[in-house]
């Protein structure tokens, strides 16, 4: 019941052709369709038609993120729940974008557009009958799936409250001020991964990154090799997060949207007790080995 996962991210890019080349040949997603100036892509293990939409614009960033719910009728229920919570909801009609059914759309207190949907064309991963572990002819990094999104905004507490109270997101980790009074960052999950969405204090409406999942540390290293080979701009080379315990590489797409490949971390259940970090230990939380925050990591946003 409820939200199953982060289903899709729609990102603005400065040059659609360059971005399609990057997301298909370097990241290794599959280009599913192009229509009306949008490109629709999916990772190889995903069964829905797309998880990433690219649209050309004069500035990069996030158009919207969308969570997939288990049942269509839940859209009505969440629409009512959001309105009871005091949030205005709009309907996005079927056919607004390719292969998608209707969605409900609202704005987080941090200024980000969020959609909930159930219906989307199912194309499958081709690995359901006596399958091999992965398909042939994968390109680039070839992550199996989209993993999570990290956004910035002023009202971290407000967005967190909404997501936890209306959608039953669970908290895996948080960063608080030394006095414990203020929430500076939060990691929330509906799946059993450490985060489906994370929010850090910063300018409203901005994208920090969206991330793809990888199987393990060897895949993280190989991903970094692939990025270097293709002259992709790194933000952070392979390392471990204190927060989530995951391993990571951060880098930038051709328009400056930050991407991450993320692997591992613990497997939280609904009764998980959140991990708390105090603001003075943030660097250990983000970059467990180096324990230094660089300005780029906090200031380069789209």
């Amino acid at each position: 019941m409820g939200i199953m996962r982060l289903g899709r991210v729609e990102a603005r890019v400065l040059d659609l052709e360059k971005s399609i080349d990057y997301y298909t040949n370097v990241i290794g997603l599959q280009l599913m369709a192009r229509e009306n100036g949008r490109a629709y892509l999916k990772a190889w293990d995903e069964e829905d038609h797309h998880s990433l939409i690219l649209i050309e614009a004069d500035h990069p960033g996030l158009v919207h993120m969308a969570f997939k719910v288990r049942y269509e009728h839940e859209l009505d229920e969440y629409e009512k729940a959001l309105e009871r919570y005091g949030v205005r909801v709009n309907r996005v009609s079927k056919g607004t974008r390719l292969a998608e059914g209707q969605a409900i759309r609202f704005e987080l207190p941090t200024g980000h557009l969020v959609e909930l949907y159930h219906e989307i064309e199912r194309v499958g991963n081709g690995l359901k009958l006596n399958p091999d572990p992965y398909p042939e002819n994968l390109k680039g990094i070839a992550p199996p799936a989209l993993d999570h999104v990290l956004i910035t905004g002023e009202d971290v507490q407000g967005a967190t409250n909404l997501l936890m109270n209306v959608f039953d997101f669970h908290m895996s980790e948080r960063v608080v001020t030394l006095d414990g009074e203020q929430l500076l960052a939060v990691w929330l999950f509906r799946t059993n991964t450490p985060h489906d969405i994370a929010i850090i204090k910063g300018p409203n409406g901005k994208l920090h990154h969206f991330a793809f999942n990888l199987g393990g540390w060897n895949d993280i290293l190989r991903a970094a090799d692939c990025l270097a080979k293709n002259n992709v701009a790194f933000d952070v080379t392979p390392t471990r997060h204190g927060i989530t315990r995951g391993t990571t590489v951060y880098f930038f797409d051709p328009s400056g949207n930050r991407n991450e490949v993320f692997s591992g971390g613990y497997i939280p259940c609904e009764d998980f007790t959140p991990v708390t970090w105090t603001e003075d230990q943030l660097a250990k939380g983000i970059f467990y080995h180096l324990r230094e925050l660089n300005e780029r990591f906090t200031a380069a946003l789209t």
């Binding site: 400065l14 701009a233 400056g256 949207n257 380069a300 946003l301």
Partner: peptide
């Protein structure tokens, strides 16, 4: 010169 995204996106 500050190094950011190197993609014309972040302005650093």
């Amino acid at each position: 010169i500050k190094r950011g995204c190197r993609g014309g996106g972040c302005g650093m």
